[in-house]
């Protein structure tokens, strides 16, 4: 399989097929990235498209110093920050950000989501980048511009805190855990 970096270089050289392959590889992971952070499927899809638009526009400036994966999530994080600022501005001007959609969301997803919301924002971001985007400590360090040791210590703290939040809620409502409640297709977990 051709590496992401080789595809990016091919795209720089004018290969449309290389772009299509990158799009196919990353559309869904990027949708998950935005989907979990915004709880707004329409905006998530828009932002995936905007991420790839940014890739097209900046293709000539891409240098294979970083993994394409890290590069894409770097763009995604910037778009996310802009999106959040928009909501912040609109909420201070009287409009409020949309509430996360919960219709039809399984209880165990709400349970996880609410536990994550209890974490400090920076620690939550590190945890999510590691768990959902499967980024390495050094990738996260580079993206968030913090030392690797800080990534590690914050990740450790956030995992312990999350465990505590999840456990306390699951004790009062044991059916929340998907393996004891709804049948659930597990994806890969921690290595």
């Amino acid at each position: 399989m051709t590496s992401d970096e080789a595809l990016m270089l091919e795209f720089q050289g004018g290969s449309r097929a290389a772009f299509e392959e990158l799009f196919a590889r990353y559309r869904k992971p990027l949708y998950g990235f935005f989907g979990r952070r915004l709880n707004n499927p329409e905006r998530a899809d828009d932002l995936v498209q905007e991420t790839f638009l940014a890739v097209i526009r900046a293709a000539s400036r891409y240098e294979p110093r970083a993994l394409v994966r890290t590069y894409l999530y770097g763009i995604a994080l910037k778009l996310l920050a802009v999106e959040r600022r928009k909501f912040l501005t609109s909420s201070t001007s009287g409009q409020s950000a949309p509430e996360p959609k919960t219709d039809g969301t399984p209880d165990y997803v709400l349970w996880v989501r609410q536990a994550l919301e209890k974490l400090d924002a920076p620690e939550r971001e590190i945890l999510m980048l590691r768990e959902y985007e499967q980024l390495s400590y050094s990738d996260i360090s580079e993206l968030l511009r913090i030392p690797v040791n800080t990534v590690r210590s914050k990740l450790f703290r956030s995992r312990l805190a999350l465990k505590s939040y999840l456990e306390s809620e699951a004790k009062t409502n044991p059916s929340l855990r998907p393996n004891t409640a709804q049948p659930h297709q597990r994806r890969r977990g921690m290595q």
């Binding site: 949708y31 998950g32 996880v112 768990e131 998907p178 597990r186 994806r187 977990g189 921690m190």
Partner: peptide
């Protein structure tokens, strides 16, 4: 266990 609980939150992509 924490990692697996987190994986319960899957996002269905269009």
């Amino acid at each position: 266990s924490v990692s697996q609980d987190l994986m319960a939150w899957e996002v269905e992509s269009p």
